[in-house]
């Protein structure tokens, strides 16, 4: 079952208005994403790590998430130093490229920084709250519907698939490297699609019957408080600070 474990909690991060958190996360991750300076990436990573700690996530779950993202960066650490070229150093029997290591480091810092920022700011709200927050921020309704309904539909698709998989299992299906297995899986996927589509149609009917006219009205309308504004200002200030750091480092290294 899909869960939102990080959205449950009572830290100041959880209590903030989703709108404010969306804006803050956009600002910080944007600066981190476009920057090519090691200083910005490093300081950004530290700042977002502090934010993450303040949001008090469950350590076990947190490490699992961080691990998943870093499988990708691990591949970069394996491939980039060996393929990037340029100045090299001697390490055991390998000659890794210095620029390659630098680039892998930069990407790792940036991706982890953005990850920390999203877990601290975005994952501490429920998907439904984020969807409504997006609408209130003026994001096109279609986009926030896409988020809300794909989130809802994920459960349904997962359930349909599990049901079919169980049915196959109970009738003695053991996956092997055979045509029968591939055919069975293609039937399973096809059926999952068809059934999910049908179900989505019925859900839509249920919504229309209850007066849905293309506008979702949230039950819990969160009003931004003064604390929310201070929070937003602090986050925007941090982003600005990070952005300024990139000018410092550029002027230092540029000839």
């Amino acid at each position: 079952m899909l869960e939102e474990p990080f959205s449950i909690g009572s830290t100041p991060f959880h209590k903030r208005d989703p709108k404010v958190k969306l804006l803050s996360a956009t600002a910080i991750s944007l600066v981190l994403a476009v920057s090519s300076s090691m200083l910005v990436a490093g300081v950004g990573c530290i700042i977002t790590a502090v934010l993450l700690l303040l949001s008090k996530p469950d350590p076990g779950l947190l490490f699992k998430r961080i691990f998943h993202v870093n499988i990708f960066t691990l591949f970069l650490w394996i491939t980039l130093p060996l393929t990037y070229g340029g100045e090299t150093i001697h390490f055991l029997f390998l000659n890794p490229s210095l620029d390659g290591i630098r680039l892998a480091m930069l990407i790792s810092l940036k991706s982890n920084g953005i990850l920390f920022c999203f877990i601290a700011l975005i994952a501490t709200s429920s998907t439904a709250a984020l969807g409504h927050g997006m609408t209130q921020l003026g994001v096109p309704q279609k986009l926030s519907f896409l988020l809300l309904f794909s989130y809802r539909q994920l459960f349904v698709i997962q359930q349909e698939y599990q049901r079919l998989q169980r049915a196959a299992l109970l009738r003695g299906f053991t996956p092997k490297n055979s045509l029968h297995t591939y055919r069975t899986y293609s039937h399973l996927f096809g059926m999952t699609l068809v059934k999910s589509w049908n179900r989505a149609e019925r859900v839509q009917q249920a919504m229309v019957l209850r007066g849905f006219q293309g506008k979702l009205i949230p039950l819990n309308q969160q009003k931004s408080t003064r604390v929310d504004y201070y929070f937003l200002l602090t986050m925007l200030f941090l982003s600005l600070l990070l952005a300024t750091l990139s000018f410092i480092s550029i002027s230092q290294y540029s000839p």
Partner: peptide, 9 residues
Amino acid sequence: DSNDQLFSP
């Protein structure tokens, strides 16, 4: 099927 009717969290 009530599953079709309930869609909010």
